[in-house]
Design a protein around this nucleic acid. Sequence first.
DNA 1: TTGAAAGCGCTACCAC
DNA 2: GTGGTAGCGCTTTCAA
Lengths: 359, 359
Amino acid sequence: MSKRRRPTPAKMADIARITGVHVSTVSRALAGSPLVAEGLRERIVAVARERNYVVNSTARNLRLQRTETVSVVVPLGHEGVQGLTDPFYVEMLAHLADDVTQRGHSMLLQKILLPTDGWLAHLIASRRADGIIVIGQNTEHRALEEAAASYRPMVVWGGHLERQAYCTVGTDNVGGARAVVRHLLDTGRRRIVFLGNPSMPEMLLRERGYREALAEGPGDAAAPCTIPSRFTVEAAYEALRTFIRQGGSFDAVFGATDVIALSAIRALRDAGLDVPRDVAVAGFDDVSLAAHGTPSLTTVRQDLARGSRTLVDLLFRRIRGEDTDSVVMPAELVVRESSASPLASLRRVSRAESAPSPP
Amino acid sequence: MSKRRRPTPAKMADIARITGVHVSTVSRALAGSPLVAEGLRERIVAVARERNYVVNSTARNLRLQRTETVSVVVPLGHEGVQGLTDPFYVEMLAHLADDVTQRGHSMLLQKILLPTDGWLAHLIASRRADGIIVIGQNTEHRALEEAAASYRPMVVWGGHLERQAYCTVGTDNVGGARAVVRHLLDTGRRRIVFLGNPSMPEMLLRERGYREALAEGPGDAAAPCTIPSRFTVEAAYEALRTFIRQGGSFDAVFGATDVIALSAIRALRDAGLDVPRDVAVAGFDDVSLAAHGTPSLTTVRQDLARGSRTLVDLLFRRIRGEDTDSVVMPAELVVRESSASPLASLRRVSRAESAPSPP
DNA sequence: TTGAAAGCGCTACCAC
DNA sequence: GTGGTAGCGCTTTCAA
C-alpha cells in the first residue's frame, strides 16, 4: 500500500565516520588485518556489530574480481519440474548446499529447461559465479566439451566417457550395471530388459554394463533389449505398460534409475504381474525410497555424500587454477526383495495358495 | 597439474575500442537504448556477440544498487539433509527456480541448519539478494517477526498466525485438517491420533484443525491425542512405533505431512497392523508419492504451482516497495485408499481370510 | 600503524 | 546521438 522509504543500510564510510577513522582502516579492521592496533580494531568491530553492518558483497566482489558463489546447474531435457524432483538430484543438491556453504560460498541454483544453443557459454561469460557444478550431462555432452576447451572451473556429475575434455565425478556405471545384471542372471532370470534412455551418458554406460553382463552370461539368456524411456515417473510407467501391452516377454527389468524401477514395479503390478515372483526389478542410485517400498528395491548404491564432497573439492582446486582428473567412484550392489529368486517366491506363494485345498 | 593463466574475459571497454566508440555508447547499445543509431547499435551488438561478451553483472549490480538475485532459504531444525529432501520442499524449490528465473533473476539457495541467533539479520544485511523467500517457518517465527520490522522484501511460505508482522503465503491449514479429520470421523473412525510437531506454525494450525474437528464430532469420539514427531521419515516411524509398543490405542492416524503419514503406514505394517482395515491414515501436502504408494494416501492437497507463483509475485511487489497482505489458499481434501471405511475393508478381508479358515 | 587515493566495470547524467 | 565523467562501496598500494 504505502511506499515507505527503505532505510539505507550502513556502509563502511558510516562506520569510519562514527569511529573517527578512515575507511581503509575499517576495511582492514573488519578483515582482521594485524596492521590495525588491537584496541582500535575491537572498537571498530563493536561499532559495526552494533549498527548491524555487514560488508557489501557486490562492491567487495567487484574489487576482488570474484563472486564467492558457485553455480549449480541442472540441465533438463523434457523432464520439466519432475526432473528436479528426482530424489537423486535432490539428495545431491542438499549435500552440495552443505558443502558449498561450508567453504563460505553461496550457491546459485539454475535449472536449464530445454537447453538452447550457447546456454553454457552464456552462463560462463556472465561470470555470476567463480565456478560451475553441472549435475547430470543429460544431452549436453557437446556443450560441455566446447565449454571445457576454454573454461577451467567446471566439474560435472555424470558418466566418464572416453577422451572427454571436461572433468567428471561419478559412479562406475558400467561396473554397477554389470553387477546387478549378473545378480539377476545368478538368481535365474533369463529375459532381462533395460528400461531407460541411452542418449544420456550415464544411462548409456549402464546399458553398456547390462550388455556386457548378458554377453558374459549363460548361453540361454535372451539377447539384450532396451526399452527407451525418459527418467520421469510417468514416462517410465507408460513405456513399460506399452511394452507389456504389445506382448513383450521378460522376467526381469533393469531400470536405469530407481525412479524408473519404482515406476516399473507399479506398471507391473497394475498389469497383474507379481514382483519378484513373475518379474524381478532392479534400479540404480539407491535413493532413500528404494529401501522403504513394497517390495524393497534391489539397486546400485551411489555414494552421494562422497560425490558431493568430491565435486566441491575438485571445483575449488580448479578455481585455484589446478588441473584435476575425473573421479570414478566404485558402485555397490544392494540386494533387496524386488529381485528375490523366483524359486523362493514360488515356495512362498504355493504355501499361501495351497492352504485352502488341504491335501 | 599446470597452472595455466586464465584468459581475461572481454570487458565493455574492449568492445568500445574495437568498434571505435565510447563505453557509454556500448552500454546504451547493449541495453537497447533508443538513443543509439540503429546501424551503430547492430554493429556493437555483433561485435559483442562475436567476442562472446556478456556484461559483468557484479559491476552492473554495484552501479545499479541491486543484485538481480532472490535468496530462497530453508530453515531446518534438526532435520539435517533429510529436511531438504522432503518432497514438499523439493517440489516447491523446483517451481520457485522456474518462477524466479522467468523474472530474469538468479536464485540463491540457502539451507540454514540449526539456525543461530541473528542468522536472518545477517543474511539481510549482507545484501546478496534483492529479496528473500523463506520456505517454512520451522521454529523461526520470532526471527521472522523481528526481521519484518525493518526489512520489507521478504515473503514466507507457511502458516498464517494471528497478528504476525511478516507476509506469508500458505494453505488453509486449519480448514484442511478439519476436512480430513471430519472425513475420518465420517468413515467410522473414533480414536484418531495426530502425529507431528506442533512447535512449527503450520503443524500447530493443522493440529488446531484436528482438535476443532474432534470437538465438533460425535460424542463417542476419543479425546485429541498428539504424538510429537519431527517431520523426517525416521523420526515419524520411531515415534509411532514407540506409541504402539507402549500400548497406545487408536484406529486412525493423521500425519502432519505426507512424509510423516507414509512413515506411519510403514510403522503400522511393521507392527502387523493393516491399513486401512485396522488403522486409517491421512496426511497433508499431496506430494507426488502420495498417489502412488500401496495403499495410496488420503491427504490434503496444497497447490504448489500457485503457491510458488504467489510467493514470487508478492516478493517482487515488495521489492518495488509495495505492501502486500498474506495469502491463504484453500485446501482440498483428496480421499484415497488409506482411509477406506473399516466396514468396506472388513468385507474385503473376510472374503479373503475366510477361504483358508483352518483355525 | 594510519591516511590518501586509485581503480574494479559499469550506468547515467550532463555537455555538445 | 555521442563523448566525457562521476561514482556505486570496497580493497590495497603507496606515503607519511
